[in-house]
């Protein structure tokens, strides 16, 4: 057991780093869905936009200022984009999931294609900030410092999102809206503004995740759909509309993608969707689904 642990500790650590990034990406998707019933398939395109923003600001010679600048701009643009998406989905509030999914899929295609026109089809890499771009020795293995830092950032953001949702007035409204949307508007709260705020925060987090993920994943066409699928799996496994579910889902998928691929090397291509199918067959509402989302 000890030797097994010793051999795989780095993979477990790596799963934590990937899980942290996935949490930052997926929490917005989960809240938007839980609250507004909108399945936002443009979420991956926002991540990719963040990655390209990182490439634009940081490129291959990273400085702290440019990295921080990229994060700040990503948050602002992301919030605006989220507000825009909120307005765009407003007329579809009483339509099916399918219509919203198609609309956001259309937005995703347009955004991804515009990015490819702007930045070309070559793979672009993004450097980590100075001091974090090297490697260190953890548990006897070389490990990139930046990924360790990512675990810390993920933990910080998880606490921050938790505080906002559990301790602030906005959080209260969000939780109330997840539980019963009609009741919130009946109480005289402008539900649309709450929705825009949640959409904005979720999208800002997605773009920030894109900048943060840049040094690991780079920026290239096609990355948007890959991360979108990961985020969807996280959200569905964790249960929709729950911050805690998104966190657990992200950590589970981080391990599935990391440790799972080590242990089941021959089935590496199947583990992600296998895990998703298994969870949905056993627990159709996800691991932490608060209630059945049977509305179509």
């Amino acid at each position: 057991m000890l030797t097994w642990l010793d051999a795989n500790l780095v993979s477990i650590l790596n799963g934590l780093a990937i899980g942290s990034l996935l949490f930052i990406l997926a929490v917005g998707l989960s809240l938007v869905f839980g609250m507004m019933d909108v399945l936002n398939l443009a979420h991956g395109a926002l991540f990719l936009a963040g990655a390209y923003l990182g490439h634009l600001f940081v490129g291959q010679q990273a400085g702290w200022a440019s990295f921080a600048g990229a994060l700040g701009v990503a948050a602002v643009i992301g919030a605006l984009a989220g507000g825009g998406l909120s307005v765009m989905t407003e007329p579809l509030a009483h339509r099916s999931h399918l219509d919203q999914a198609l609309l956001t899929l259309g937005v995703a295609l347009v955004v991804a294609e515009l990015l490819s026109i702007a930045f070309g089809n070559d793979v672009q890499s993004v450097a980590a900030p100075p001091g974090l771009d090297g490697s260190t020795v953890v548990l006897g293995s070389t490990y990139p410092v930046y990924r360790l830092v990512l675990i810390g950032i993920g933990a910080l953001l998880a606490v921050a999102v938790h505080v906002v949702i559990e301790r602030t007035r906005l959080g209260l409204l969000v939780r109330a809206a997840v539980a019963d949307r009609e009741m919130v508007s009946a109480l005289g709260v402008d539900e649309r503004r709450v929705k825009a705020a949640v959409f904005g925060i979720g999208s800002a987090l997605a773009m920030v995740a894109g900048v943060l993920g840049g040094p690991i994943y780079g920026a290239r066409p096609g990355l948007d759909s890959t991360v979108l699928i990961l985020a969807l799996v996280v959200v569905v496994i964790g249960g929709l509309g729950s911050v805690r579910g998104a966190l657990i889902g992200a950590l589970v998928i981080g391990q599935v993608e990391s440790l799972g691929r080590v242990l089941l090397a021959d089935l590496a291509s199947f583990v992600l969707f296998g895990a998703l199918a298994l969870v949905l067959v056993l627990r159709p509402q996800g691991l932490f689904g608060a209630r059945a989302q049977a509305r179509t």
Binding site: L39, A101, L240, A277
Partner: peptide
């Protein structure tokens, strides 16, 4: 399953079959 879970489950099935 129903709703968005049906969407996701069929997505997973499709991806597994493709794989």
């Amino acid at each position: 399953s129903a709703g968005v879970f049906f969407l996701m489950l069929t997505l997973a099935i499709g991806e597994i079959v493709r794989q």
